[in-house]
Design a protein around this nucleic acid. Structure first.
Lengths: 129, 129
DNA sequence: TATTGTTATACTCTATAACTATA
DNA sequence: TATAGTTATAGAGTATAACAATA
């Protein structure tokens, strides 16, 4: 457990630092990364209450935009702007440092790690509340 | 990277839920767990600014206490009270659910995972600022 | 002078509850 | 009546800057 905790902390430390270098908080970076896909419905994906999304999107400002849904006018689809997508590219590029640790593992090591991590957290359904 | 992100998110989700069940936030739980050892110096270990420790310790209230250092009167050593240690025990017991995923891995799988995670984040020196 | 801890301040993230506009 | 998003409010975590006590 200790080592898993350290690996998790290390990952988030790297992500936070990479995000900060490009004017984003970790949460903002995570949201923008999720928005690579047009955002399925809303963001139960961020494991937070719906009321947070409003402020989160507000603070992202130009990096994101709200678009009215044509089918259901209650829905506002959040999409990343070009500025937002560029920020994601930069953050992900900065995460290369972390990825490189992966790269240094041999092919078998990587496959093994994938499999073991997958067995630890087979599901990714983060419930809100 | 995706799978590492999911594993990290899964770990913290479990920890947050376990902590909440016992009246703690994730950060408070992490701090209390660190305090199993009498706290080396202060808490650069939490990867946060010194000014946060004050409020963090305040909010932990009875689960923690400040003790004056005999050698250097500027220093206040933070130690977990029995109530604090009990809270840690309960949280860690609740994390068994997560640990069990480990237990289901065979012996070799566990050793391999330890080694691979260790190679990803060999150091745990979290710099403040 | 330098360091430890605190206070003051400000911003982000979070949840709950009440509200609106749609459906 | 129910749902999607918002607003208002409150609390927790964070950093910066200024400060007191001690070294």
């Amino acid at each position: 457990m200790e080592r898993l905790a350290r690996a998790a902390a290390g990952y988030y430390r790297d992500l936070t630092a990479a995000a900060a270098r490009h004017g984003l908080t970790m949460t903002q970076a995570k949201m923008l990364i999720l928005l690579r896909q047009p955002l399925p419905a809303l963001a139960g994906r961020l494991a937070c209450d719906a009321s947070n999304i409003t402020g989160l999107v507000d603070r992202l400002e130009a990096r994101v935009s709200r678009e009215a849904d044509t089918a259901d006018r209650r829905i506002k689809n959040v999409v990343a702007t070009e500025e937002g997508r560029e920020a994601v590219r930069l953050v992900r590029a900065d995460m290369r440092g972390t990825s490189e640790a992966f790269a240094r593992l041999d092919e078998e090591g990587r496959r093994t790690l994938y499999e073991l991590l997958g067995r630890l957290h087979p599901e990714d359904t983060q419930k809100t509340t």
